[in-house]
């Protein structure tokens, strides 16, 4: 009952961004790899980032270490998806 449904890393990142920012699916579907995140979206503060990382860990069954997280990771949607794909493939 609590088993995870199969979710691609990109779909997981989109779903979490949708929840954190309170957007609808169409708005998040419009995010491209160049979409700017941290600094461009006021809702994405450091507390929201803490929630985002933890939620990605849960949804993708990965562990993210403190030293893997830097500012560059949250610059664009593409960076975040690439990171999630890299972690999921480990």
């Amino acid at each position: 009952m609590s088993e995870n449904l199969d979710l691609t890393p990109e779909a997981a990142v989109r779903a979490v961004m949708q929840d954190i920012l309170g957007l609808d699916a169409e708005q998040v579907a419009a995010f491209t790899s160049e979409t700017e995140l941290f600094g461009a979206l006021p809702e994405l503060d450091s507390m929201a980032v803490a929630g985002l990382l933890t939620e990605l860990e849960d949804r993708l069954d990965i562990m993210i270490e403190d030293d893997e997280v830097d500012g560059e990771l949250f610059e664009t949607f593409g960076n975040l998806v690439a990171f999630a794909e890299m972690k999921a493939a480990e």
Binding site: D19, G22, G51
Partner: peptide, 8 residues
């Protein structure tokens, strides 16, 4: 929506 993930 997952209100627990929101900033506010």
């Amino acid at each position: 929506s997952a209100l627990w993930l929101r900033a506010e």
